[in-house]
Design a protein around this nucleic acid. Structure first.
Length: 447
DNA sequence: TCTGGGGTCCTAGGACCC
DNA sequence: TCTGGGGTCCTAGGACCC
């Protein structure tokens, strides 16, 4: 087979649209939702992300003034004093998102919810139904989005998901780009490799070394070249970019999480062991809050720390059973921290990853553990969640994460302090004795 | 893009077994 | 006891995405 593949030096294209895939990408989605809700914000420089202190999504007006994603809000405010800063409202964005998918499903049932603000849809075979060409159908979807949702979108139509996404990206905002088979050659002629979804900077650099600089260069190489240099992804993208689709639309709803992680950067960096540990424990608490919100339980926990030079070290540990109780994992997390933390090193962020996740209650219980005790720990977590939903997130928290709250204030006045003393009690410590199956070192790698 | 946070997938290579 | 070959499973970490 590979011998045959190697003998395809030139790619030959193709009728206009043997297959028609559309990619629909909302323009500056979060801020577009905000100004769709409140039209007074239209055409103004606005950003979301107030709660995190960094720009999460700048409107095009803000972008035009030099505001970029990830920028600190203080810096953004200096560049653009009239900037309007809004907190993220994920509930609003979810509502708009599901409306968007509903609108597209009016035209075709084959819709993939690719992300909160992006969709793929398969238009193949719909020309007779709509008495229109594929571009004309895609145009109608775009117009429906703008009319019914009040948000502009950029649309790409082509022969595969990768090409459709590439097309929608070339003209933003409010763009409409169709790449039929016979135009592929021209479209890809000067297209930089990094524009392809799946080629990052590293892959582009590697391809450059072989003299491949544009997407057209890439697909003119034999398939074997792509396979050998970049493996499975390389081969698949090679096909997709030639207009031979290999990625199917995933039209089923996403079932559940494989991992849940929580990371937080702290500034300034710190070499204070208690403080860094507190940050880690706080992340663990946040991860478990999310886990319980989705009625899931986890068995593995990875703790990692990032140094000021961005190198990191991590270690994973495992319980004998699945659990959704924070208190089941505190001891494990502490032990992992002890292995990972180096005296004298300064750290800038910490994080945890929960993995081996399954539905709550699906685990067969460990035979050697007391079911009453397990139930008690679970009830404690539920009770803590209830208190926190009333008084605010992390009002009630682990003693070990309390240092995160101390910003020069004495913690004695807050509810946390009382909880801290409670958790330090001997009876609690005895209860936390969960056997560990294993801990493994995840290395000590630079990035 | 000198770097915020939350994810997924792929793969080389080690461990283990026959 | 040493040796070879081959298969499977696991995992650390790279790369990429939004």
């Amino acid at each position: 087979m590979s011998a045959n593949i190697n003998k395809t030096p030139d790619f030959v294209m193709l009728s206009s649209y043997p297959i028609a895939i559309a990619h629909i990408d909302c323009d500056a989605f979060f801020t577009s939702c905000e100004s769709a809700r409140d039209p007074k914000l239209k055409n103004l420089p606005i950003v979301t992300g107030k709660e995190r202190g960094i720009v999460s999504c700048p409107s095009y007006e803000a972008k035009a003034r030099g505001i970029k994603r990830g920028m600190r809000l203080t810096e953004a405010g200096k560049i653009c004093p009239e900037l309007i800063v809004l907190p993220s409202d994920y509930e609003l964005y979810s509502i708009y998102s599901s409306r968007m998918f509903t609108i597209i499903r009016r035209f075709t049932p084959d819709v993939e919810e690719y992300s909160i603000d992006e969709a793929f849809c398969d238009l193949t075979g719909l020309r007779r139904l709509y008495r229109a060409s594929y571009p004309a159908i895609a145009r109608r979807i775009k117009e429906a989005m703008e009319e019914d949702l009040g948000i502009t979108v950029s649309v790409g139509v082509s022969l595969s998901k990768t090409l459709a996404k590439l097309a929608s990206k070339t003209d933003k905002p409010d763009g409409f780009t169709c790449i039929p088979g016979y135009k592929l050659h021209e479209f890809l002629k000067d297209m930089p490799l990094e524009k392809v979804c799946g080629f990052g900077p590293n892959t582009a650099a590697l391809l450059n070394k072989s003299g491949v600089r544009t997407v057209l260069d890439y697909i003119k190489k034999p398939q074997d070249f792509a396979q050998k240099l970049l493996g499975k992804i390389g081969r698949e993208l090679w096909c997709e970019l030639r207009g031979m689709p290999v990625y199917r639309l995933v039209t089923e709803a996403k079932e559940r999480y494989l991992t849940i992680s929580k990371t937080k950067t702290f500034s300034p960096a710190s070499d204070n062991k208690e403080f860094v540990k507190g940050q880690l424990m706080r992340n663990m608490e946040s991860a478990f809050i999310k886990l319980r919100r989705h009625n899931l339980s986890a068995r593995n926990l990875t703790a990692y720390l990032r140094r000021t030079d961005f190198s990191h070290c991590a270690m994973e540990g495992r319980l004998t059973r699945h659990s959704s109780s924070t208190l089941d994992f505190t001891q494990l997390c502490s032990r992992l921290f002890e292995h990972v933390f180096e005296d004298g090193a300064a750290y800038r962020s910490s994080g945890v990853i929960l993995s081996d996740i399954m539905d709550e209650g699906a685990d067969s219980r460990d035979l050697f553990e007391d079911p009453v005790r397990i139930e008690n720990l679970k009830n404690i977590s539920i009770a803590i969640d209830k208190v926190n939903s009333y008084y605010g997130k992390h009002t009630l928290h682990l003693a070990s994460s309390n240092i995160v709250n101390e910003k020069g204030n004495h913690p004695r006045n807050c509810l946390a302090w009382r909880k801290q003393n409670l958790l330090k009690g001997e009876s609690f410590r005895q209860r936390l004795n969960i056997p560990l199956l294993k801990m493994r070192n995840l290395g000590n790698q630079g990035t």
